[in-house]
């Protein structure tokens, strides 16, 4: 029997991708039943493992580094491997493995010290995720171009925002200069697509980081929300002249911004008759 086992191990070491379970008997030149028993023993000894490939069960040598792991650690490692570079949250590990919190914590610690997995924190969240040690983190974890060290790079966003708006302002100015009489043509010519803006930024080499069209699309979305640019139904954008935006008459009166407005009433300590804010406002105008 031991011979068969050795033969199977020798065979599997040659066949790195593994052998289908049904073919075992044929390859080892023994009955399927014998092959089956032999396989069970090797599985119990954690020397080989079963994997499912395209619906067929294959038997394969277990990797060397996984050999010294406990059962719990092995289960967790498989789950983390499945999560690949997107990472898996500890709560999902617990649900999928069915292990207790303490067991999981212990096993994860061991795996971490063996440098088989690593813990990462995604942007904008405190959730700890685990992923294989050598996996490259996904964009959903790193946050993409606008994040450095898991922190939003507000300065980069602001710079890009002003560059985009400046480019569109320039475009509008040119449009007005070229069509001084026709307002409709002026309007048509002041629109630009996100692709054009992105090409402009890439050509000028304004930024050191590579920037995609989608990144520019996100920046333009922010500019639309800020009321700096407007979007046409086909997605092209043009800048809005800020000089037409007038502030509401409400904000010209200090009562709109008064921090103690809620306590203000006639005959009370805070009242409009001797209000300092109103006095200052009248004096300043």
């Amino acid at each position: 029997m031991a011979d068969k086992e050795d033969a199977m191990v020798a065979l599997l070491q040659i066949e790195v991708d593994g052998i289908e379970v049904n073919e075992l008997g044929g390859k080892l030149e023994c009955s399927p039943q014998e092959g089956q028993e032999c396989l069970n023993r090797l599985l119990a000894a954690h020397k080989v493992e079963l994997i499912q490939v395209d619906g067929a069960l294959r038997v394969k040598m277990k990797k060397e580094e996984h050999a010294g792991l406990s059962n719990e650690e092995r289960v967790l490692l498989t789950l983390v491997d499945e999560g690949s570079n997107k990472g898996i949250w500890i709560k999902n590990l617990r649900d999928n493995s069915g292990l207790s919190q303490i067991q999981i914590r212990k096993a994860l610690k061991t795996l971490e010290t063996k440098k088989l997995i690593k813990a990462v924190k995604g942007v904008g969240t405190t959730k700890k995720c685990y992923m294989p040690y050598d996996a490259v983190e996904d964009v959903s974890i790193t946050g993409g171009t606008f994040y450095s060290d898991r922190q939003l790079d507000s300065e980069l966003v602001q710079t890009l925002l002003s560059v985009c708006v400046a480019m569109l302002t320039n475009r509008r100015k040119q449009a007005v200069d070229r069509n001084p009489t026709d307002l409709l043509l002026q309007k048509q010519a002041s629109f630009a697509t996100a692709g054009e803006v992105a090409t402009f930024i890439r050509d000028r080499k304004i930024l050191h980081v590579p920037i995609s069209d989608d990144d520019i699309e996100r920046i333009l979305e922010v500019a639309v929300l800020d009321g700096l640019i407007e979007r046409r139904s086909d997605g092209a954008v043009r800048v809005i002249d800020q000089s037409i935006i007038r502030s509401s008459p409400l904000v010209s009166v200090p009562c709109a911004l008064c921090p103690v407005a809620i306590d203000c009433a006639a005959g009370k300590e805070i009242n409009p008759c001797d209000c300092k804010y109103l006095t200052d406002w009248l004096a300043s105008k």
Partner: peptide, 25 residues
């Protein structure tokens, strides 16, 4: 809308207007 935006800009911050517009949309 223009009155409300103007008020938020003065009372809170212009970035608050950005957030509110997003939620409205």
């Amino acid at each position: 809308d223009s009155h409300v935006d103007s008020l938020i800009r003065e009372q809170i911050d212009s970035k608050a207007v950005r957030i509110r517009r997003l939620i409205r949309a």
